[in-house]
Computed example of a mutant assay.
Amino acid sequence: MPAQPLHLAHIIRSDAEAIAVATELAKRFAVDASVRDRERRLPVAELDEFSASGLWGITVPKAYGGAEVSYVTVAEVIKLISAADPSLGQIPQNHLGVVDILVQTASEAQKQHYFAKVLQGYRFGNAFSEAKSKTAAAFETRIRFDGDSAQIDGEKFYCTGALFAHIVPTVAVNEENQAFISFIERDNPGLTVIDSWDGFGQRTTASGGVTLNAVKVPLDAVIPAHKAFDQPTADGPISQIIQAAVDTGIAIGALEAAKTYARQARPWIDSQQDHGWQDPFTIAAIGDLEWRVHGAEAILAKAGRAVDLALAEPNEDTVANASLIVAQAKVLSTEIALLASSKLFELAGTRSVLGKHNLDRHWRNARTHTLHDPARWKYHLIGNFLLNGVKPARHAWN
C-alpha cells in the first residue's frame, strides 16, 4: 500500500453534499459490483475514489476542519453505498469508529494530527477482533510500554479494510486488561496483513488477518480506548448504526433486483395472466417487501437522531436510548436483508438461480454481514430495557 494517498481528498462541507457525493459514487460502484464479487476482484481503485471523495472525513469535527455531519447522514451515506456494493459500504465502518474514539479519548495534539490525515484522504483499517479469544470483547494481543514507545504483539482476524489502509489502528491490552489503540503505519516493521478472508459473502472486504511481531510505535501514536466506555459515550451505538446501514443497503439492493427480475418472470399457470408482473401474489409480495424496507430506513434515521443526541448530551440516559433505538434498527435491517435476498429468487423464478446472474450475492452478503453480532441479543436488549429498565451494557456491540 502507498505510504500516503495518491491524491489529496476533497473536503465535504455539509450533510447535503455528503449525500449528493454518495449518490453519484453509488451509481458508479454498482456497475461492476457483481463482477467484483464473482471474481473476488479487490476494489483498490474504487476505494481510492471513495476516500478521495471526502466521504471518509465527514465525521471529523468542525473544529478540526471537517463537516461533522449528523449520524442520520452517516447512515444514509453507508446505506447508499451498500445498496450498490455492500463490501465497499462495510470497509469504512471501522475507520469511522476510530474517528469517534479519537474524539472521545485522544489528546489535543493527536486529534490535530490524525484528523488532518483523515481529511487528506488517509484510510484507517482495523486490527481489532481476534478469532481465538474467548469472546468478541476479549483480547490476547498485548501492549507493553517502555519509556517513550510501546510494543505490540499478537494476532488478529476479521480485519476489514486493513489490506487497503494507510494506517492500521490496533487494539491491545496492558497488564490491567485495559484496551489501547495504537496507530500503526501500514509499512511498520513487524506488521503483516494477510489476505485470508474466504467467506462466501462480503467477498471483497479483504477481512483477513493481521499479525504483530514486536511492532513498535511512539507513545503519541497510542490512545486509551478503554476510556470511551468508562463514561457514557455514543461509541457503541456509532459502531452499530453503521452495521445496520450496511444491512439496510443490502436489503435495498436485493429488493431492486427482485423488482427487475420479477418483471421478467413467467406468470404461473393458474394466474391466467400474460406476464409475471401481473401475478397478484407477486404484486403483494413486492408490496410487503417495500414497506419493510421503508420501515428499516425509517428506524435507521430515528437511530441516527438518537446517536446525534447522545453525542450532543452524553449521559446514561441518552446513550442507553441510542443503544436501544440502534438495536431496533439492527433487528429490522437484519430481518429485511435476509428476507428480501431470499424472496428475490421466489419472485424471479427458477431462471434467477443461473450463475450468469450472480443474484445469490445478495443473500450471501446478507447472511454473512448480519452475523457480525447476533440479532437475537438485540431482541433481549430491547425487551430488558423496556420491561425491566435495564440499560444496555456499554461496549462496541451495543
Rank of each mutant, 00 (worst) to 15 (best):
E130R: 10
A33W: 07
S82Q: 05
P92C: 09
V31K: 14
G65D: 13
F128P: 03
V77W: 02
A106Y: 00
S70Y: 02
I58G: 02
V31Q: 14
Y71R: 00
A33T: 12
N94A: 13
A52Q: 12
D100T: 01
T73W: 03
V72H: 00
I91D: 01
Q90Y: 11
F115G: 01
A84H: 12
S53C: 06
T59E: 01
A127S: 10
F128V: 12
A75G: 15
W56L: 13
N94W: 06
S133F: 02
D37T: 10
E49I: 15
G97P: 02
A84K: 10
I81C: 11
I81D: 13
L47H: 07
G57M: 09
K79M: 10
G66R: 14
R40D: 05
D32I: 05
Q112A: 10
E68I: 05
G125S: 10
I91R: 02
K117Q: 13
A75F: 07
Y114H: 08
S34H: 01
N94Q: 13
Q120E: 15
A109P: 03
A109T: 10
G121I: 13
A84Y: 11
Y71P: 00
V44Y: 13
V60Y: 04
A45K: 05
K79L: 13
V77M: 05
A75H: 04
D37E: 14
S129H: 13
G125L: 09
E46K: 01
D32Y: 11
G65L: 12
A137R: 06
V72G: 03
F50Q: 02
L42M: 15
P86M: 09
R38S: 05
K111E: 08
N126Q: 15
A33E: 11
D85I: 11
D85R: 13
Q112F: 00
F128S: 13
H113C: 05
G89I: 07
Y64K: 03
R38A: 08
